[in-house]
């Protein structure tokens, strides 16, 4: 379970303080997907980077399975990082083009199990690929030989390799075509269920978030302005900003 308490991340620039994350409190249980919604610049990426310990928080606490992450030393952060992984928007940019699928995934697997080698390693890589719907016979290929959707599957496999407890997916389907989007959304829902993961799904697309998330948090100017179950937020939005977002979604009109 992930618990965030009164988290603040400020940046100082030109004598000004930018409150990118300003007093955020959230809770996500195991096996649950939290949808984090907001427009560019609302602080959702800074929030996820702070949770990932990539940016130190200004104040506040982050607990993953009751362990306080905000007070760790850099060495401890490195060890703990196995437990939280990220999937990014652009699978073209987030995979190393010079590494085969095998070496990308083997490297990630060895973070948790440094002893894996030889046949055992190949078998584990193959299992991982099957888990995300890729045929293991493609393990010697490079990222450019795959389509966008397949590349996103590789990125997801890499995130799963160290057996994390928390996955933050930052706009994981925004760059994909509609027909591929639905494949990846199905994959993510099944993985969360099967592996009992905790997931934060960041997106600006409320209709996608409504479909995939159990709970939704709406973020505006560094603050969570509304949170609730997915159906509550979509059907009985309370905050004006949520209503604005909802009314802006282009609906298929018949």
């Amino acid at each position: 379970m992930l618990r965030i308490e009164n988290l603040c991340t400020y940046f100082h620039a030109k004598g000004q303080t930018i409150k990118a994350v300003d007093g955020v409190s959230l809770e996500v249980s195991r096996g649950e997907i939290l949808g984090l919604v907001g427009e560019s610049g609302c602080g959702k990426s800074t929030l996820s980077r702070t949770v990932m310990q990539l940016i130190p928080p200004t104040s506040g606490k982050i607990f993953l399975e009751d362990r306080d992450l905000s007070g760790l030393t850099p060495k401890e952060v490195r060890d703990e990082r196995l437990n939280f992984q990220m999937v990014f928007q652009d699978p073209y940019a987030s995979l190393n083009p010079r590494m085969t699928v095998f070496s990308t995934l083997a490297e990630a697997l060895k973070r948790r199990h440094p002893n894996f080698a030889g046949d055992e390693l190949s078998i584990k890589v193959g299992e991982l690929m099957e888990k995300v719907g890729l045929a293991p016979r493609f393990m010697k290929k490079y990222p450019h030989e795959f389509s966008g959707g397949q590349r996103q599957r590789i990125a997801i496999a890499r995130a799963l390799a160290p057996e994390p407890k928390l996955i933050i997916a930052d706009e994981p389907v925004s760059a994909l075509d509609v027909s591929i989007q639905s494949q990846i959304l199905n994959l993510l829902t099944n993985l969360v269920k099967d592996l009992n993961l905790t997931m934060i799904f960041i997106s600006h697309d409320l209709s996608v978030v409504h479909y995939i998330a159990d709970k939704i948090a709406v973020m505006q100017r560094g603050k969570i302005v509304e949170k609730g179950t997915a159906d509550e937020v979509m059907e009985q939005a309370q905050h004006d900003y949520t209503k604005t977002l909802l009314s802006a979604i282009p609906h298929v009109t018949r």
Binding site: V178, Q181, S207, Y211, D231, I249, V252
Partner: peptide
């Protein structure tokens, strides 16, 4: 049919 908005949760 693959648009998430038109599918049941």
């Amino acid at each position: 049919r693959s648009i998430p908005a038109l599918q049941k949760k």
